[in-house]
Simulated assay, not measured.
Amino acid sequence: MRVEIGRKVAVVLVLLVVATVNGPVGTFDSMTLLERFIYWGLLLPVVSTLMIVGIHYANDGPHLRRLHPLLRITIGAVVAGLPSALWVMTLGATLRGFEFTAYGVGFRWVIATIMGMGIGVIEAYVRPRDIERHMRERLADATPEPAPEPVREDPLFIRNLSPDLGREIISISTRDHYLDVVTAEGKDRILKRMSDAVAELNGLPGLQIHRSHWVALDAVERLEREGRKARVVLKNGATLPVSRPNIPALAEALEKR
């Protein structure tokens, strides 16, 4: 609230300085610099306060809330325009020698109402949107950029495979002293123990489901059970047996993937 009042006072002071120096509506030729300062110093704060109070009450008052905001602004400007016009006419008659007439009051009432409506539209529509835009820009500038995702290193086991087979391992199975490795790109057979292969997979999401088989969890289509026996159906259509002790661990891992 204090910031808002301070902003309005600052605007009035700026207008006072501009009006005093430039002397609009004939005050430059008919008044000295001091007289202009006194005239505009009495006119601007009073008229501004009347308009602010009138439009504020029309916008926030309990009796006009059902009306459209533009209609409320118009009513507030019209109501505040009459005392504003009377004050302008009083200063004109006192300091500038104008004749105090009903026509003069009516003319200044219209001018004050139009100016008040412009001020009300700026305060109710233009300025709030400008403040919202600045707030969004400040929030966007203050929001830290997301940290880059850590680069996932390939498992050490990949170095055993031909580059043509890619890096997406589906399954590994033992055959005598060799391992049959199935990837998304093809198959390969390498000389290595299963225990060494599992150690070199470096935490790749997968599980040794049998003493002779390891599978990547993402490659598993489903787990099938038939009595005490179980097997996995892979997405490439292959099936591999699951030893009984490994069934609970595999079922839990598939649920969490």
Rank of each mutant, 00 (worst) to 15 (best):
L240H: 06
V12L: 07
V242C: 02
R222L: 05
V215P: 00
I158D: 04
R167H: 14
Q208C: 08
G166R: 06
H134S: 10
G120K: 04
S243I: 12
R244H: 05
G203L: 07
H68L: 08
L207F: 01
A216D: 03
R96D: 07
R244D: 01
D130P: 00
V215L: 01
R138C: 00
W87S: 07
A93V: 07
F107H: 02
L33S: 07
D196A: 00
L42W: 05
V121K: 00
L95G: 06
R189G: 02
S173N: 05
I131S: 01
E255K: 15
A112E: 09
G227A: 04
P62A: 08
H177T: 09
K229R: 15
T74V: 15
V233Y: 09
V21W: 10
R136Q: 14
A80E: 06
I5V: 13
G61K: 09
W87P: 05
V14E: 04
R66M: 08
G54S: 15
G6K: 04
I190M: 03
L43S: 11
A102R: 15
R129I: 02
P150H: 10
R189N: 00
L95F: 15
P62Q: 03
M51A: 12
G76P: 06
R231G: 03
R225K: 15
V110Y: 12
N202F: 03
V11L: 11
R175E: 15
S84N: 10
R244A: 15
E255S: 14
A93E: 10
L207H: 04
I111W: 10
I55R: 03
V53N: 01
V46C: 05
M89I: 08
S48L: 03
L13F: 02
L223S: 08
I114W: 12
L86C: 13
T74S: 14
A199T: 09
P205A: 07
V242Q: 01
D154G: 07
M1H: 10
R189H: 03
V105A: 01
P148M: 12
A80I: 05
L234Q: 04
A112M: 08
T113L: 02
P245R: 11
G54T: 06
G118F: 10
Y178H: 12
V18F: 11
R228G: 13
R127Q: 11
S162L: 13
R133G: 01
A230W: 09
V121C: 04
R167A: 15
V9W: 07
P155R: 08
V3I: 13
I5G: 08
T49V: 14
E153L: 13
R136A: 14
A197R: 05
L139H: 05
K235L: 13
K187N: 10
L179C: 07
V21A: 15
R225C: 03
F37S: 07
P163T: 13
L240G: 02
I122F: 13
D180N: 11
P62H: 04
G118A: 14
M135D: 09
R211P: 06
P245F: 14
P128K: 04
L217T: 11
V198F: 12
R7D: 06
E99L: 09
L201Y: 04
H56S: 13
